[in-house]
């Protein structure tokens, strides 16, 4: 049955109505979870607030397990779901740069949208920087065009790399998430004793 749009079950302008609704839910949940505050987000790196890890990993395992069940019930054709392609070299660099950006800037793009929505000037400056960063990348693209497409592994999945099924991979991610939830709960309790609580 699904995915609906790639199979033409929903067509035309409905695309954009659905995009608006999905985006709305995304923004609402990010803001309501506390991601409009850079200090909430940065807490994940300093042990005083692991909300990012909790929301992120919960969402990840819900979506992964959900996709497997949808596939099992025949509700979605996983072959039609977009698997982000892997380009080893450029994604290594990209991941590292985003790690720096995350710690220094305290936002990622999605969360900065919601920060701007509630009136955070630092969110606006972050997204202006983000704009400049993508502009720098785009205009400089001829310089690293080859690097950008090097190490092309196509739409490869985690399971294909490790020789495991999607089900086992998902089970692994669920176990890692559960251990992380428990471990970070312990860390947070200890760190919060030494860091003064602050007003957001």
């Amino acid at each position: 049955m699904g995915p609906l749009i790639p199979q033409g079950i929903i067509t035309g302008q409905w695309d954009f109505v659905i995009a608006l609704l999905i985006g709305f839910a995304f923004g609402f949940i990010l803001e309501a979870s506390g991601f409009s505050s850079s200090r909430n987000i940065a807490g994940v790196f300093y042990g005083y607030n692991f909300v990012v890890l909790r929301v992120f990993f919960t969402a990840l395992i819900v979506a992964m397990v959900g996709l497997l069940y949808f596939d099992y019930f025949g509700w979605i054709n996983l072959d039609l779901v977009y698997i982000l392609p892997t380009y080893i070299h450029s994604m290594l660099l990209g991941g590292v740069l985003m790690g720096f950006g995350f710690v220094i800037g305290g936002f990622c793009p999605g969360t900065s949208f919601t920060a701007i929505a509630i009136g955070k000037l630092d969110g606006i400056v972050f997204i202006l920087g983000f704009f400049v960063g993508i502009a720098i990348f785009s205009f400089g693209f001829p310089l690293y065009e080859d690097f950008f497409t090097a190490g092309d592994m196509g739409n490869i999945t985690i399971g294909e790399i490790l020789g495991l099924s999607n089900q086992i991979v998902t089970l692994g991610v669920v176990l890692v998430a559960l251990v992380a939830f428990w471990g970070t709960w312990l860390i947070e309790k200890r760190v919060r004793k030494t860091i003064n609580p602050f007003k957001f």
Partner: peptide, 19 residues
Amino acid sequence: AGIGGILFGIGSQFGRGCS
């Protein structure tokens, strides 16, 4: 925030997407 944004911007393109 501005510096972080710039790094995130460049990184998101090399990384084929952000968080």
